[in-house]
Every structure is written in C-alpha cells, then in structure tokens.
C-alpha cells in the first residue's frame, strides 16, 4: 500500500467514525434558543410611586374576567403602616379593588383600626402579582403539566387540562394563585399574555397613572426597564425559596413578604 493511499484510507476511517459520533451529540434547538431567547418578560414595581388607587386591580379584573364580587384577584395592592410606637399594620381590603378609601386598617373579621395620624411613622403601598419566577415552584408540582412556563418567561395555566387539585396554590410562596370562581380551575396572572402578544401593555401597567408598574424585556439591554434593573438597587420578594422571581421591586422593605 502506498503511503498516500494509506493516508487517504486513514482519513476516510476517521471521518467515517466521527460521523456517527457527531450525529449522536444532538443539539436541542430549544435549548440553544432558551439560552438566548429574544424576549424574556420582567416586571418592575416602584413602590415609591404607588398611591394605592387600585386602578390596576380594577383593570386586571375587568380585562381578565375575574368577577369583581369574588374575593380573589390576580393582582393586589398592600398597604403597610408603621406606627411610631413600633407596630406594623398591613391590609388589602378586597385586594384594593376600590383603592384605599378608608383611612382605617382592615383587621379582618369586620374589625377596623383607626391609627392616630400623629403616630404614623412610615407608610407605603406595595402592588403585588405573580412573579413569573425563573424556576417556579408551581409548575414543578403540577401533576399533569397544566401549568407551565412559556419560552418568553410567562407562567400560564392550561384551563382545559387543570384538574383543580390545588397543589400549585400550596406551592406558590407568593399567594398568587387561586381557584377561578366561575371556571373552577386554577387562575393566576398571565402578564396579560394576550395583550403582550398584540403589542399592548398589560392591563395593570396600562392603568397605572403613576408609572409604579412597568414591564419590559429583560433580555434587551436597551429596554428602559432592563436599564433600571441593571443600574439601580432593586429587590425581589422571598428570594429564600430559590424561585428566582422576575418581578423586581424598587423601595422594598424587609417586612414586605
């Protein structure tokens, strides 16, 4: 055998052998895409700007057909009042659907507490909604895969597949989930997915007069929201659960859970 021929054969063998190997290391296109998808939605709440008008809750309930009378909501606003004698009061009457038109704190069981204005220390409002976590506890525990995370980072519920066991409600550390009073399946914030995909803002973002709620694509470095999340001191709720929430908060207090 000539040297040249030998080399040629060698190359053929090597190439031949390597083909099946490369064929086996298969590339999951979804994984490549997931590593760098175009869009990853994130939410930004500026608690300093919120005045507790509750228009976001009203808009959310209207847009997403959650009956006003039902005492559940995809988004809600909490009021925190600290008194100078170091007491803390929190409430969210009817999820703040009608705002905070009463200066008294709702203590539940039909009791209300008037706080002396001179005694009020710090007080603020915190809007809340589903955090659309990066590693959501809720989608992990769904026994039938009825709740899942889309490629652009939104956690949705498949209403025709949900069996209504409530395990995801238990697993969510944020209380963002509930049973839909009419559909009898689990319901939660969708970031108004139908609006996002039509190029509209979500209903609550749209309704906020004070720009306390905003939304953006965290994978776009030029997005103003991404800029704020990158450059300012923002926090997330309950990071100890390792769920990696995607709703970021400006002006969070440690008592806000």
């Amino acid at each position: 055998m000539e040297r040249r021929e030998f080399l040629q054969k060698c190359i053929m063998v090597v190439v031949g052998a390597s083909v099946p190997v490369s064929a086996l290391t298969f590339i999951d296109p979804k994984k490549v895409f997931a590593a760098n998808p175009d869009i990853q939605w994130a939410f930004l709440v500026d608690t300093n700007k919120c005045v507790g008008c509750g228009f976001c809750v009203k808009a959310c309930k209207t847009e997403n057909d959650i009956p006003f009378e039902a005492h559940v909501s995809r988004t809600w606003v909490e009021r925190y009042v600290y008194t100078k004698d170091d007491k803390r009061y929190v409430d969210s009457p009817q999820a703040a659907l009608h705002g905070f038109i009463d200066s008294r704190i709702d203590l539940g069981r039909g009791e209300f507490k008037e706080i002396d204005p001179k005694n009020v220390g710090k007080a603020f409002f915190v809007p809340k909604l589903c955090n659309h976590c990066s590693s959501p506890a809720c989608t992990q525990v769904c026994p039938v895969g009825a709740t899942y995370k889309t490629d652009d980072g939104v956690v949705l519920v498949d209403r025709s597949w949900c069996i209504g066991c409530g395990y995801c409600i238990m697993a969510c550390p944020y209380g963002a989930r509930f049973f839909h009073p009419v559909k009898h399946v689990v319901d939660k914030c969708t970031f108004c997915y139908h609006r996002l995909s039509k190029g509209l803002d979500s209903a609550c973002v749209n309704a906020c007069p004070f720009k306390a709620r905003r939304m953006g694509n965290i994978h776009d470095p030029n997005d103003p929201i991404t800029q704020i999340i990158m450059n300012e001191r923002v926090g997330v709720l309950k990071d100890e659960f390792g769920t990696k929430p995607q709703a970021f908060y400006i002006g969070l207090a440690q008592e806000v859970r």
């Binding site: 909490e78 009061y89 203590l107 539940g108 069981r109 409600i169 509930f178 049973f179």
Partner: peptide, 23 residues
C-alpha cells in the same frame, strides 16, 4: 357562584393575602 373555593369555611384574621384560603 361568586363564593370562591375555600371562602365558605375560611375565616381570615389580621393580614392575609387576598388569594389565601384553606384550600
């Protein structure tokens, strides 16, 4: 129909999240 699941047997006291019931 508007009584959400859990509301019939849950009594809330002080601050609970709006969607929290004994599910």
């Amino acid at each position: 129909a508007m009584v959400v699941h859990g509301e019939a047997w849950t009594i809330k006291e002080l601050f609970t999240l709006p969607n929290e019931y004994i599910y």
